[in-house]
Amino acid sequence: MTKLSEKTRGRRHHFFDDPAMDQLLSMLLATLSELSVTRERLFAMQRLAEEKGLFTREEIEGFQFSEDDENALSEDYNRMIKECFYPLGFDYRPTHKVKSADGTSHRPETEFETQDQSTVLRFGGGSNRMKAAS
């Protein structure tokens, strides 16, 4: 028996000027859904723990972190925030074709600078060849 498709046939609507925004929103909502799954399991675990007399909600609320606990938590949040913001500060280059006044289009140039900044390699600009800048 073949499986049902989870994907609707046909083109998908996008509502933002850039469809990537729509994709990001979908990814965000999928992430929220996964978070809901985690929260629901935690909720069930908490209730089970209460019923079995393991620990209560109040004990979770009142649990005092040690200084080591606090430091570990801060480190984890720091890691998580950096992970989420990792592209911040990246230099973005356009990858779309640029139209010239005469109506022709070409890919904009891409530059790579060598470490000692003595050479700039240019790639693109209508050519597939890498050439060193003069």
Binding site: L4, E6, T8, H13, H14, F15, F16, D22, L25, S26, L29, S33
Partner: peptide
């Protein structure tokens, strides 16, 4: 607000089916 209403609603519609399949 129209874009967000539409995009969230569209996604929610898809998710109704994806949740049960």
């Amino acid at each position: 607000i129209f874009k967000f209403y539409s995009a969230v609603r569209y996604n929610a519609q898809e998710m109704c089916h994806r949740a049960v399949i």
